[in-house]
Design a protein around this nucleic acid. Structure first.
Lengths: 155, 155
DNA sequence: TTGGTATAGATGTACCTACATATAATGTGA
DNA sequence: TCACATTATATGTAGGTACATCTATACCAA
């Protein structure tokens, strides 16, 4: 179904406005589905994202500041999310030896096990081959990178 | 800058995973900018979206249920956002005459004036000609519609 | 060394979403 | 017409985001 029918808006001011609204709408759809999938594992999206970053570093620890740098949504509040994960025993926190201001965060065995289970359904998180061909998905990536270039030096 | 440098992730499992992450990242950039722009006018993004829907109907009123139907993020909580707008005198609420369960919401003169001011910077909300050509923006729309087709019958 | 500044992280506030549930009004079938 | 389901909206709760501010530590230059 085209965007016009989906949101009951007949006209857009420009193809650029339509693309912006389409991005919002499409991404919201995708994230809603991801959220529902993760809920079965007791995780929220930002909790899952942090766990994945920690697994990428494992067995090295990562500071909260590193997490903020690497999170998709830059300004989210990493220290509170880490605390949620710690309360579920999915991550560990300990004082950093080199810098006593910093906190070393690392994923636990329990966290790794949970991620391993989620890996099995990870393909459901994204557009699949049923909707876009590989070439189309590649083209989408290029258009997004190019579009985003207007935000260089922001954020 | 390509996605890999931006989020410091070298490899993706597939071009589909990369497109999904790219969508999230790019949309988050765009919405962050829109949010900052709207903040100068004392509005949040969902408040702005509701005001625009109401302007589209003006001078007819719209029920809360209509708003939920037409919002980009379907499941958001329209009645609380309407209350925020009412407390700023940007919208009015009154009991619907035909259906006493429903509430008629309409935009006020003050709300229309505010939107008129925002119209002047509306082009800054989206990718502009500086990043994508019109043909590329059109292609992006088509790819998003096609990608989203895998979610048909969801939400 | 000391005073100023930068950095890492935690925390308070206002707003938001997702989901469950409550309340009131409406529709409907026996 | 009466019991029951449905609909429109409101509200409570848990979690998240943006932003400002606070504390402790680290760095740095006179």
């Amino acid at each position: 179904m085209g965007l016009e029918e989906d949101i009951k808006q007949k006209k857009f001011k420009s193809v650029y406005q339509k693309a912006g609204i389409n991005l919002t709408y499409t991404t919201s759809f995708m994230m809603n589905r991801n959220m529902r999938l993760l809920k079965k594992f007791g995780l929220t999206l930002p909790q899952f994202n942090i766990l994945r970053i920690l697994r990428g570093q494992h067995p090295q620890a990562t500071t909260v500041n590193d997490l903020i740098d690497r999170m998709l949504d830059k300004s989210s509040n990493a220290s509170r999310i880490v605390e949620k994960l710690r309360s579920k025993n999915l991550v560990e926190r300990k004082a950093c030896e080199n810098d006593r201001r910093a906190v070393d965060v690392s994923i636990t065995k329990s966290g790794l096990d949970l991620l391993a289970k989620i890996d099995a359904i990870e393909h459901e998180f994204y557009f699949g081959k049923g909707s876009l061909t590989e070439a189309e998905a590649q083209l989408l990536n290029e258009l997004l990178d190019k579009g985003r270039s207007c935000y260089e030096n922001e954020n």
